[in-house]
């Protein structure tokens, strides 16, 4: 009985890793589309998005089945309930990558190469997502705490971008729509950082049984 259960938990792990990888790819593609203005990449993010949604359904189904069949307790229960919560955050990350890609399609080929801050912010959030999934795979509480700490860095980028947007407006108020898009994009990245933080918090719960203090 336990062998079969272990196999199913292994499969659950594998699917979460796969979903995590899909999210990383979605953000990477969205940010590349943003930097290069390559619409082809932006459309691929959209296609990826439905794959992430499907993955969420699949993992959810697997978790429900495990809860029903195995009535898990202790570490098993924590792992499965953490998985159920994490995939919601992952799905949101996928949505936000899509939102960024969608804005790219409205930019008429205008790129953000000149805005270094956004590129740095994007890199930072991708790193957070990668590390949070990594922390789950390796059950690495320290790495999860590092992810949580990185969120401040991402938040900091958001404030910096906000002030630089104010400068752009002061210099050239006719560029209103572009800077608003810029603001939206950086807000999406900021939210992705929050979701990665949530994932990291669930990793800590799954391993230790206690939540990070609110």
């Amino acid at each position: 009985m336990r062998n079969r259960f272990d196999e199913q938990l292994f499969e659950l792990n594998r699917e979460i890793i796969e979903m995590g990888a899909m999210c990383e790819e979605a953000i990477a593609l969205a940010s590349k589309a943003l930097m290069t203005g390559d619409l082809e990449l932006a459309y691929r993010v959209k296609a990826n998005g439905s794959g992430i949604d499907q993955m969420e359904r699949d993992i959810e189904g697997r978790c429900m089945k495990l809860l029903l069949h195995q009535q898990p307790v202790a570490g098993d229960l924590r792992l499965i309930s953490a998985a159920l919560k994490m995939i919601t955050d992952m799905e949101r990350i996928g949505d936000q990558a899509e939102d960024i890609a969608e804005i790219v399609t409205f930019l008429d080929g205008r790129t953000m190469e000149d805005v270094n801050l956004i590129e740095e912010m994007a890199r930072e959030t991708i790193q957070m997502v990668t590390s949070s999934v990594d922390a789950f795979v390796k059950k690495d509480v320290n790495l999860a705490y590092k992810v949580i700490a990185r969120d401040d860095v991402v938040d900091d980028y958001f404030s910096k971008i906000k002030s630089s947007i104010l400068n752009i407006i002061a210099e050239n108020s006719s560029d209103g729509e572009f800077v608003l898009d810029l603001l939206m994009i950086s807000k999406y990245f900021e939210r992705i950082g929050d979701h990665a933080t949530n994932i990291a918090e669930w990793v800590i719960y799954s391993v230790t049984g206690t939540h990070k203090e609110v």
Partner: peptide, 17 residues
């Protein structure tokens, strides 16, 4: 006991190991 057992033997028993 059933969410965060303190002893590994408890965890192994209740999870059917």
């Amino acid at each position: 006991i059933f969410s965060t057992p303190g002893d590994k033997r408890t965890e192994d028993y209740i999870t059917g190991r």
